[in-house]
Design a protein around this nucleic acid. Structure first.
Lengths: 340, 340
DNA sequence: ATGAAAGCGCTAACAT
DNA sequence: ATGTTAGCGCTTTCAT
């Protein structure tokens, strides 16, 4: 059998004995207190190294009433579409940034069936703060968590007013306007929209951005179909658009996955892209990079978004002043799906 | 400012007082001890609900010498390619499965620069067990961790002998043979291989499987180029293959990402697929699903792999007998890249 | 600058 | 079946 890992781990007390100082002094050294004489610090360091001492988190947490744990809350529905490369990148950014700190990353899958369980866990003093990513969820039972626990959201929370929650996001409306304008500048007039779920900020805002650009240009903005951000539903939406019989010379989809789906529907109907219909997406993930033709899209700094979320929370926890809203930059990338 | 979340959290002692029993009894109820009378259980439950009591993990961990934490160790290089959908799915499986247990998932990014930091953390009594995924790493400093801490690997560990580590994997050799045989059955004779990194088991084994099938069929197995599992290097490998001037009528790539890259190289050279060259991949991820044409591939149950890893570790931790090696089933999926 | 002492909230023998 | 008694390993006043 495997030996108990917690067995025989050297304690602070043993370090103190070996260094010939009190436990308090060792504790101070471990916590970088400035009030310890240099030689004492040295002696303790030697003892720590010799023993391979690692502070016990549980004891430390119990005594200090701080957990040094940050929860990354992922609604279960989002977890199921972990396949979403955008989401995976955000998680990656969070993990990378947190690895540089003393915080530990606790990934929590929030079952939509038992939201109370998650709430209790988060509010039960098990974590110092939480990061909530819900690209794909309408569930915002976490919106009010921010009143009790430091929380940073990935993407603007739907239900909470901007004034009382911290979040990191991109300018979805503005970016959607930009892609749409690109399509308009190309001379396209009948630009359809494959919108994402409207119970999600990203879905609603991108639709709003498209509408804004269309009406500013005096174009009709009634060509809208909806999908759930998946390639499959993107393809289905495209087919419905085609079947409507209305003239279409361009399509803007709420994300690259749906745009890629639209591309396959177009291919199966023998419609040339961008010749007959130009297609643009949003996200800048590899669905768009590897599609045929590659997609014109709005690139979001997905890893950067995760890093920023972690950073905002860490600073919040450190008591530093932090801006409630952080908007990350996006960039329009023009590729073969709109320009031959 | 935000109120201290750990402030005022009801303690076991308060529950005991309200229920009119001792702390031990409350503890027993919380831990589902069978030795508590029904009415006492009821009284305690009422008190717990009324107070909204949540056990303090730190205190529990300190007293019980168990952390209830499982680390998911991700080598930093792997984290950077978190973009790998296969890997993301494995993580998803782990998280989903662990969410059903009492364990907490601690995601640890193991910096290759400071492997000792991770070792210390894992061995310092901060976790009960670890899950190591290193699809993309040659680093196996974790191989010997298994001697001290319960560890389950995703994929066969390279350096450790099978007899002393737990792992969950698929039959890479056999599956690679199967795809290759499919190509041979199609009448292809000059089948090239785009192999993955040979310092990784998956890379080496898939190459071996292809070799085996080729030599069994009496075919030449010298048409090999290597890549790092990325689409870009898959495309480059394909170009080198084409530039070699040797006849080629099929290609098997170590993963779908490289196969997708090969597809784009082929398209840019105007080579028809599967007409002139048939292409097959491995993994069953969406690179293969969304490519044009979609890829014939070996589907691995990626989420299932993660779930199984979690399950094996949980059972190991529970002291249940568990098989050291778990091989998950794969399936050959034939699509347009090999059959018109 | 350092030590002594008192817990943090819980579990785990040991009694009863 | 339930209560009592010690700690788990660390931080943190409070002295000195």
């Amino acid at each position: 059998m495997i030996s108990d890992p917690m067995q025989g781990a050297p304690t602070l007390e043993e370090v103190a004995a070996l260094a010939g100082v009190s436990r308090s002094t060792v504790s101070r050294v471990v916590n970088n207190s400035p009030h310890v004489k240099a030689d004492a610090v040295a002696a303790v360091q030697v003892a720590i190294d010799k023993l391979g001492y690692v502070p016990n988190r549980a004891a430390r947490s119990l005594a200090s009433r701080k957990t040094q744990v940050i929860a990354l809350v992922v609604p279960e529905s989002t977890a199921k579409v972990f396949a979403d490369p955008f989401f995976a990148s955000v998680v990656q950014g969070v993990a990378l940034r947190l690895a540089e700190t003393e915080y530990t990353l606790n990934m929590v899958i929030a079952s939509e069936a038992a939201p109370e369980k998650t709430r209790r866990y988060l509010l039960g003093g098990n974590v110092d703060g939480a990061l909530v990513v819900s690209h794909h969820s309408g569930d915002h039972s976490y919106a009010h968590l921010g009143l009790t626990l430091p929380v940073v959201f990935g993407g603007r929370p739907l239900s909470a007013s901007e004034s009382d929650s911290y979040f990191v996001d991109v300018d979805n409306i503005g970016s959607a306007r930009t892609v749409t304008q690109h399509l308009i500048d190309l001379g396209r007039k009948n630009i359809a929209m494959i919108a994402g779920r409207q119970d999600m900020p990203a879905g609603a805002d991108r639709l709003a951005g498209w509408r804004g650009a269309m009406s500013d240009a005096g174009l009709d903005s009634s060509l809208v179909e909806q999908g759930d951000f998946s390639p499959r539903q993107g393809a289905e939406a495209m087919r419905r658009l085609l079947d409507s019989g209305r003239p279409i010379d361009a399509v803007f989809a709420s994300n690259d996955q749906m745009a890629a789906g639209a591309l396959s529907a177009l291919r199966e109907r023998g419609v040339s892209v961008p010749g007959t219909i130009a297609v643009a997406g949003f996200d800048g993930d590899y669905f768009g990079e590897t599609s045929e033709p590659p997609l014109t899209t709005v690139v979001q700094p997905s890893t950067g978004l995760g890093e920023k979320m972690a950073e905002v929370l860490v600073r919040l926890l450190a008591g530093e002043p932090v801006e409630r809203v952080t908007i990350m930059p996006t960039a329009l990338i023009v590729r073969g799906s709109t320009v031959a």
